Simulated scan of single mutants.
Amino acid sequence: MRLLVYLWSLPNTLLAITIGLLLMGRFQLVDGVVEIHGRRVAAVLRRLPVPASAMTLGHAVFGQTLDTLQITRRHERVHVRQYERWGPFFVPAYVLISLILYARGRDGYRENPFEIEAYAVDDPSQRV
């Protein structure tokens, strides 16, 4: 069964690994998830429409630093599980929900159900 969830989210994972290589990121494998960090990775994360300390694509997580990856690990693992459920439909669903929320004058990031689920596991003292 684990193999199936890895295959289901593989397109996003491969995209993340490709991006990580292009950005000359540093890679590590933690509990079956590829974690990628580095100077260029951090620069891209800071310049996103919603600046991020970390971001998940499939079974890969980008983080600004090793410390950031550790601090955000629980939150980002929720997103990994969401990719396991939604597979290639995760990104379109996430973006569509965000756009609908923004169109209604709401916060498309903080009020996105995918983020609500991930923030529910965060330790408030560890938020970045």
Rank of each mutant, 00 (worst) to 15 (best):
P51K: 07
L66N: 11
V41G: 01
L66V: 14
G25W: 09
R47G: 00
L57M: 10
V44C: 00
Q64N: 02
P51R: 06
G38V: 02
M24G: 12
S53C: 11
V41N: 01
L45K: 00
L66Y: 10
I71T: 14
V30L: 11
P49D: 04
I17Q: 15
Q28G: 14
M24A: 14
D67F: 13
E35L: 06
M55D: 01
M55Q: 11
Q28Y: 12
A52R: 07
Q28C: 10
V41R: 00
R26K: 14
A54I: 05
L48K: 02
F62L: 05
L45G: 02
D31N: 14
V41F: 02
G63R: 06
L45F: 02
G63H: 07
I71P: 01
V41D: 02
R39G: 03
M24I: 11
L69F: 12
P49A: 03
G58V: 05
T68N: 13
R73Q: 14
M55K: 08
I71W: 15
L23Y: 08
F62W: 04
R74Q: 12
R73D: 09
H59I: 01
V61M: 09
L29M: 14
A54G: 09
V33R: 03
M55F: 09
R74Y: 10
R40Y: 05
D31H: 12
P51E: 00
H75M: 10
R39P: 01
I19N: 11
L57K: 10
A60L: 02
F27M: 13
M24Y: 11
T72R: 13
V34M: 09
R39S: 08
Q70G: 13
L48S: 01
L69N: 12
G25S: 05
I17S: 14
I36C: 10
L23M: 09
V33A: 05
P49M: 03
A54V: 05
L29N: 09
D67R: 15
P49C: 03
T56P: 00
R74V: 11
G32K: 07
M55V: 06
I71Q: 15
H59N: 04
I19A: 14
I71V: 15
F62Y: 03
L69A: 13
L29K: 10
F62I: 04
H75C: 10
V50P: 00
I36W: 10
R46L: 01
R74E: 09
A60H: 08
G58R: 03
G32H: 05
M55P: 00
V61Q: 06
V41C: 03
L22P: 09
A52T: 02
V61P: 07
H59E: 03
P49W: 04
A54E: 04
L69Q: 12
R40V: 00
A43L: 06
V34D: 03
I36P: 04
D67P: 13
L21K: 15
G63I: 08
I19W: 11
L45D: 05
G32N: 04
L23S: 08
H37D: 05
L57N: 03
A42Y: 05
R26H: 14
I19T: 12
G20N: 08
R39A: 08
Q28K: 12
I36N: 06
Q70M: 11
G38H: 04
V61T: 04
V44W: 01
V41S: 01
Q28W: 11
R74S: 12
A60W: 06
G38P: 08
L23P: 06
F27Y: 13
F62R: 01
A52L: 01
